[in-house]
């Protein structure tokens, strides 16, 4: 089993043109930030060549001036590689990884629903996790969103089961 430092060192040497930053946080935790332009190339290499073939989850973050998506990948020997990629504030988008990991679908829909990050190449399907009548353009996990911004019309339509 390679240590986190060895992995970080190897990624740094092999993929220097794709990588903006790499660090070994502790045993079994490596973080890497990749250039959005080379996201797919680097992601595929990490998965297919470096053995980070298990997708744990995808986290989306609102960093106020931009968005960030983190792909938490793990290897068979328990090392977690978190791959960060940034997206612009206006019209944020990241490419889909569902061609490699069909299971990423729900996590990618979460990015679309909760943060309004467009996932290009994701097939049409039912939204997750917000209700179907959730108003357009309201993304609850964005930092500038709060509950008072919720369209009152939605409340009326659902009415919370009060008309029993």
């Amino acid at each position: 089993m390679k240590t986190a430092n060895e992995i970080a060192q190897k990624l740094k040497e092999t993929y220097s043109s794709y990588i903006l930053d790499v660090s070994a946080q502790r045993e079994r935790r490596v973080w890497v930030e990749v250039d959005p332009k080379y996201f797919r190339e680097s992601f595929e290499s990490f998965v297919l060549k470096e053995g980070f073939s298990i997708l744990s989850t995808i986290s989306g973050l609102d960093l106020k001036d931009k968005f960030q998506v983190i792909y938490h990948m793990s290897s068979e020997d328990g090392v977690v590689l978190s791959i960060k990629v940034n997206a612009e504030r206006e019209n944020p988008s990241v490419p889909t990884i569902t061609d490699l990991f069909p299971a990423a679908e729900l996590s990618e829909r979460e990015l679309e629903d909760l943060l309004g990050i467009n996932v290009t190449g994701l097939i049409q399907g039912r939204r997750y996790p917000l209700p179907d009548n959730w108003p357009k353009g309201q993304y609850p996990l964005r930092k500038d969103w709060n509950i008072s911004m919720l369209d009152k019309k939605t409340e009326k339509e659902t009415d919370g089961g009060k008309n029993e």
């Binding site: 989850t57 986290s59 973050l61 609102d62 938490h72 729900l106 996590s107």
Partner: peptide
């Protein structure tokens, strides 16, 4: 799996939780 980001205050900046059922639902 949980991802937690802190900004140095007493409140988390971002908390992401992924429970096992979400990983299994597509299977």
């Amino acid at each position: 799996i949980h991802f937690v980001k802190s900004n140095g205050t007493d409140k988390p900046e971002r908390v992401k939780l992924r429970a096992p059922t979400l990983a299994n639902v597509q299977s």
